[in-house]
């Protein structure tokens, strides 16, 4: 356990971008809310204005969460691809391997960092950012809103959404993470190319020689966001899930009644595809550990 903590600290020492990127990103958003122009929608009475602004605030918070999440996903992908390659490249693997730390512990520490800890860091920064922005905007616009944007249930929904996204993406994208780690432990150079070309070649070969697109279909269903959304989230169109808030006379915004209604934990856990993917992911991670044991040199 002690070793695990040090392995994770080591990752944060090496990859300061883990917190620098969301810190800068959050900082920019806060600056924008401090100095940016704002416009409170005109409405007849203060109650309507508050409803409208709070509805807009929920949309805004979800937007910020999603944006942070996208940046995080790109960063984690790069991190997984680089983590086992970088220390072979600079030969520091010869130092790390002189410590009584198993290759399994090393690989798992990188996996946990990418799939759990990096998302949690982004979550924390997104949270602080949204809280500060809500506070700043509430203060700046208090004259026209007449109160705070802060609503505890909105905030709790966002927290749940984050934790749900972190848990489900970690499981859903385990095969992707396993593949990236295996490439990172194996490639002598050009990790990005090696991560993309073999699956692409496989899909093309299938199309050319068999005329089918089964592999391409599987890959798209796993990597593409649509595959994840259809398993982990649910969206039933219809008025029941949405609140329509009138703005002035001829405009309106739609906000979800509750974010909880979009989470499909039951469907995600009971889908065989979730667990087949996880099993493939674990197999690839075992491969990555084996490669890590055998490959010391570039």
């Amino acid at each position: 356990m002690n070793t695990a903590i040090w392995l994770v600290r080591r990752e944060f020492w090496e990859n300061r971008a883990i917190w620098l990127i969301p810190a800068v990103f959050g900082g920019l958003l806060i600056l924008a809310s401090l100095f940016g122009g704002y416009h409170v929608i005109g409405a007849e009475d203060l109650t309507t204005v508050r409803t409208v602004v709070q509805a807009g605030a929920l949309d805004g918070m979800v937007m910020i969460a999603v944006t942070f999440f996208v940046v995080m996903a790109i960063y984690s992908t790069w991190y997984l691809l680089d983590c086992l390659y970088a220390d072979r490249k600079d030969r520091s693997i010869l130092f790390w391997k002189s410590m009584p730390i198993s290759d399994t512990a090393t690989v798992i520490s990188k996996l946990v960092t990418a799939l759990i800890l990096v998302p949690l860091v982004y979550f924390a920064f997104a949270d602080v950012t949204t809280l500060l922005m809500a506070f700043i905007i509430s203060v700046r616009a208090s004259a026209s809103i007449g109160g705070s944007l802060w609503r505890i249930d909105t905030w709790l929904q966002i927290q749940t959404l984050w934790l749900y996204l972190i848990a489900t993406t970690a499981i859903w994208y385990l095969p992707v993470a396993g593949w990236l780690l295996a490439v990172s432990a194996w490639a002598k150079r050009a990790v990005i190319l090696w991560s993309i070309l073999p699956p692409l070649a496989l899909a093309l070969a299938e199309r050319v020689f068999l005329g089918t697109q089964v592999i391409a279909g599987y890959l798209a269903a796993r990597i593409g966001l649509a595959g994840y959304f259809s398993h982990a989230l649910q969206y039933t169109p219809g008025a029941a899930n949405w609140v329509k808030t009138e703005i002035g006379h001829d405009a309106s915004i739609e906000t979800p009644v509750s974010l909880y209604r979009f989470l499909n934990a039951g469907g995600f856990v009971s889908s065989p595809e979730t667990w087949i993917g996880a099993a493939i992911g674990i197999a690839l991670i075992v491969c990555a550990i084996q490669l890590r044991t055998r490959r010391t040199e570039i």
Binding site: N2, T3, R9, W13, D87, L94, S98
Partner: peptide, 30 residues
Amino acid sequence: MHDACFIADVAVLPAWLRVDHAIDFVAGVH
């Protein structure tokens, strides 16, 4: 590696590592 240690090549400590962190790390895991 509990009972053996090695220096297999010179200058393999990674560029980003801080001296005090290096000591903390080895103290933590060894």
